[in-house]
């Protein structure tokens, strides 16, 4: 139509102008995310070291991983660690947020205290917790001796080392879930609580029927963020146990690091990295789909 033609002509340059606004981010996104991801995938199909690619090996690295007992143990260790930390971080973060979501001064002081551990570096955190866990005059050892017990070498015990690293991680990372939950709680309209009071709802009913359903999206967000973060466990075992004792605390990222940078098997390490990427993706997507299906009901 005659009227449409000039309108379309006006719209077209505007479309390009819009794309220009996206371009800076797009360049960074492609250069920093898409290209490295593609390179990693390509590298995982090669036999290569730090000097270059020796040969294309197809999926040989992946079949080798499937038969590598150490790698399989690191997969289990990583899952075990995620199971230890993610529910605890989510529930403790939620609990702290519920307790500290009030305008009192003591609450704001405690909010700051609980968040402050998050800003520390992994080096400081692991140093502090090594001092807590060490059997030679460590905090727990001293307390145990005072109560008549004997000191336990947490970080040297095959069964206790991973829980000890999990405790360290929870202490270090609790600030983020707490702050996310606090932000969500403050978004819940106050008049919903007032309506609940007029509806004779007990505290428990108010929590389970009003508060938790109102912040379920944040709950999901926290779980996904924490799954992604905790699957990437590296610094704590590297500094506290070096993956020991007997590989009990060796996670996938440490395996990737050692394979790639100690043993110079870059292709094999890249394949392990792809497995980790797939695990995180599947876990996050599964969580997302389960929660969004519940949402639709």
């Amino acid at each position: 139509m005659a009227i449409d033609a000039p309108a379309r002509a006006r719209r077209r340059p505007a479309g390009w102008a819009n794309a220009l606004f996206v371009l800076p981010y797009l360049i960074v996104f492609v250069a920093m995310i898409v290209v490295p991801l593609a390179m990693g995938m390509w590298l995982s199909t090669t036999k290569s070291d730090l000097f270059g690619v020796e040969a294309q090996v197809g999926f040989a690295n992946f079949t080798r991983l499937a038969r590598d007992p150490i790698f399989l143990e690191t997969v289990w260790n990583t899952f075990y660690f995620v199971l230890l930390t993610v529910p605890a971080l989510t529930l403790i973060g939620l609990g702290l947020a519920l307790v500290l979501n009030r305008p009192a001064r003591w609450a704001s002081v405690l909010r700051t205290i609980f968040f402050v551990s998050t800003v520390l570096s992994v080096t400081v955190v692991t140093l502090v917790w090594q001092l807590v866990f060490t059997p030679d005059g460590g905090l727990i050892a001293v307390a145990a001796e005072a109560l008549g017990g004997s000191p336990v070498a947490f970080l040297n015990d095959q069964d206790l080392a991973m829980p000890a690293i999990a405790v360290t991680t929870i202490w270090w990372c609790i600030g983020l879930p707490m702050v996310l939950f606090l932000a969500a709680l403050q978004q819940v309209p106050r008049d919903l609580y007032e309506a609940a009071r007029l509806d004779n709802a007990s505290r428990w009913k108010t929590l389970t029927r009003i508060t938790l359903p109102s912040i379920r999206r944040t709950f999901l967000l926290v779980v996904i963020i924490e799954i992604i973060l905790q699957f990437q466990l590296f610094g704590q075992p590297q500094l506290m146990t070096r993956g020991g004792p007997n590989n009990a605390t060796r996670p996938i990222v440490l395996f990737i690091y050692e394979t790639g940078w100690r043993q110079w098997e870059l292709g094999y390490a890249a394949a392990a990295a792809q497995v980790l990427f797939a695990m995180i993706l599947i876990a996050a997507m599964a969580q997302y789909f389960v929660a969004s299906r519940k949402d639709d009901r």
Partner: peptide, 19 residues
């Protein structure tokens, strides 16, 4: 509030959004 025998209609309705 729940024991006073009153019911209130709020300015912004205050209906529970997830129910």
């Amino acid at each position: 509030p729940g024991e006073r025998g009153v019911a209130m209609v709020f300015q912004h309705y205050a209906l529970y959004p997830h129910m």
